[in-house]
């Protein structure tokens, strides 16, 4: 019971982990290249969610020191790291999409299975 209670309390982490597995599954099993790219994004996003959730403290304020209120602040480091992570994810996505555009131009399809079929027919 303790386990389930912890799971319920850590729901942010739980969702992040579930998203991670979904992303990994889609990335490895789906043959549609665009779906693979989307899955890559889901996977990245799940890690971002996990990271940001780590930094959160219940009741904490955003770490901007303008109005020193009565409260306390959340941990700023994970947020800063994830800012970097997001940009990295965007870059990879852009490059992957440019590859897909060109693959579509050569084969007329974005489905990996069909591409394999086309190639085997040619040989």
């Amino acid at each position: 019971m303790e386990t389930l209670k912890n799971l319920a309390h850590n729901y942010y982490y739980l969702v992040a982990v579930v998203l991670f597995v979904i992303g990994m599954h889609t990335m490895l099993t789906h043959s549609n290249l665009i779906k693979k790219v989307i899955a890559m994004n889901i996977m990245d996003t799940s890690v971002f969610l996990l990271f940001v959730a780590i930094g959160y403290i219940r009741g904490g304020q955003a770490p901007i020191m303008r109005d020193i209120g009565d409260g306390f602040y959340i941990n700023p480091l994970p947020g800063a790291l994830i800012l970097t992570g997001i940009v990295v994810g965007v870059s990879v996505t852009a490059y992957a999409l440019s590859l897909v555009v060109k693959i579509y131009r050569y084969y007329g399809t974005v489905d990996a299975d069909e591409i394999v079929e086309i190639r085997s027919r040619e040989q």
């Binding site: 386990t3 799971l7 309390h9 739980l14 403290i57 219940r58």
Partner: peptide, 17 residues
């Protein structure tokens, strides 16, 4: 997923200072 779930159950509790 199972291993990740038991890991989640063990993680430091969310939002605690």
């Amino acid at each position: 997923g199972y291993f990740l779930l038991i890991t989640v159950a063990e993680m430091p509790l969310f939002g605690k200072a």
